[in-house]
Design a binder for these strands. Structure first.
Lengths: 179, 179
DNA sequence: TGTACATCAGTGAACGCGCGTTCACTGATGTAC
DNA sequence: TGTACATCAGTGAACGCGCGTTCACTGATGTAC
């Protein structure tokens, strides 16, 4: 594959990740994603096998980036401090309003059961890796799982409530409930 | 409106609430909902103005039922006990697997920003009423909001993970994190 | 160096399909006399 | 009580539209001699 073609593929994938974060894996159309990448719809299938394949790759990549970001936290911190820091970012207003480099779960979780099986497998693997990252010991794993639920639910609720004082309160309240 | 017609309307609305719980407000088609109610698609517009109007009514009704259910809890309980009991039901395996009389938020939250404005207004009002129901005092409101985020996120994550041991662990972990 | 051909990324029109919505019609029920 | 007509809930075919996907084509770039 030529350099040019693989750069184009990256542009399409980038456009797909933005669309996925904001509108989930189902609603954005192939034509819209290609348009956002500065291309026309017909060329899409030279780069990806199907719309589902594109969205699965975008989903997988975004979750992997979330975990990489966590790995950058100071190794000497306690597991609880890591959870608090992760939530401070995840539940910030900046992250709520972000359109790139954000988490795909708030917009996608409700649609996952209607998507092909590999999406679920990616989520299962991500969840297990997140627990490994956020729990200090096996006994601690439940705290990591509960904090994940709290973060995802808090961000999804805050986004659904729109730009309002109530939305800000949800973020603040969820942040202070991290265990 | 005749008795017969209003009973038919109820059947359509019941079919819509089931579809909404499982698949959100966008994916189920008018034809599917009518089929589930034992009717053909053409008759739909004698009962509802549009698909959005149907789904908004189903969404509103389901949230109101959730609040009614909370009102049935013993009045003499503390606000915290009410939150613990609410979560014990909401995060039970039975509720996770329920297809009727469940909460529409896990399946709908991610799609809300793509729906007409009234959906958001209904969610804002529901959130405020839930806080009133689950907080003992104004200072307590943040705990109610955090628990809502935890419950919605926990149920959405558990459902997305499918029928697995990890899904059960998410429910258990979230339940024990209620504040 | 110049020409002829092959390769390749991307275009744009077309396809079959399912959707939300409309509407002429049907068949059952209710009403007038 | 019986007949003629009006009302009404529901049917099913049709509409225009946007979707995912396909494919013949174009124009630029690379290669052979």
């Amino acid at each position: 594959m030529s350099d040019k073609k693989s750069r184009t593929r990256e542009r399409i994938l980038d456009a797909a990740t933005s669309a996925l974060i904001e509108r989930g894996p189902i609603e954005p159309s192939v034509g819209e994603v290609m348009g956002a990448a500065g291309l026309t719809v017909g060329g899409f299938y030279a780069h990806f096998e199907s719309k589902d394949a594109l969205m699965l790759e975008a989903f997988t990549q975004l979750l992997a980036r979330r975990r990489e970001r966590l790995k950058q936290l100071d190794d000497s911190l306690s597991a609880q401090d890591r959870r608090v820091l992760a939530a401070a970012f995840y539940l910030s207003r900046k992250h709520r309003d972000a359109e790139v480099d954000s988490c795909p779960l708030p917009s996608s979780l409700g649609e996952l059961s209607r998507l092909p099986e590999p999406f679920r497998r990616v989520l299962v693997e991500h969840t297990e890796l997140m627990v490994a990252e956020l729990a200090g010991s096996p006994e601690d794993a439940d705290k990591a799982l509960a904090d994940m639920a709290l973060m995802i639910g808090g961000l999804a609720l805050a986004r659904a409530l729109g730009d309002s004082e109530l939305s800000d309160r949800v973020l603040r309240a969820a942040k202070s409930a991290v265990i």
